[in-house]
């Protein structure tokens, strides 16, 4: 059970949060111009990294804000959290 430092509320129990998958996958601005392959890439393909991953979390049972997290998926160590739209911290 992680202890997550919500950038808006501070440290809270993991139970208050929901994970939202890989971060920084920008929704294409003009989906209709993409090939099926390109669209599939956006829709389904994931880095699924073992190691340092940038990912989205939602403080769903709290402030309901989405934010980003840097986490080592090999040992679940949370390295940093930052707000949506902010630049990811450099590794």
């Amino acid at each position: 059970m992680f202890l997550i430092n919500c950038p808006f509320c501070g440290e809270r129990e993991q139970s208050e949060f929901k994970a939202g998958g890989e971060a920084h996958i920008v929704r294409p601005k003009q989906p209709t111009e993409l090939s099926d392959d390109q669209w599939a890439e956006y829709l389904f393909m994931r880095k699924n990294i073992k190691g340092i991953q940038f990912e989205r979390w939602n403080h769903i049972h709290g402030c309901r804000k989405w934010f980003n997290m840097v986490r080592d998926t090999s040992n679940d160590e949370i390295k940093a959290v930052y707000k949506m739209g902010e630049k990811p911290p450099v590794k």
Partner: peptide, 14 residues
């Protein structure tokens, strides 16, 4: 399953 990616072979108690 938990809803986050993890290779730690551990999940949450919830």
């Amino acid at each position: 399953t938990d809803d986050y990616v993890s290779y730690s072979q551990k999940g949450s108690h919830d």
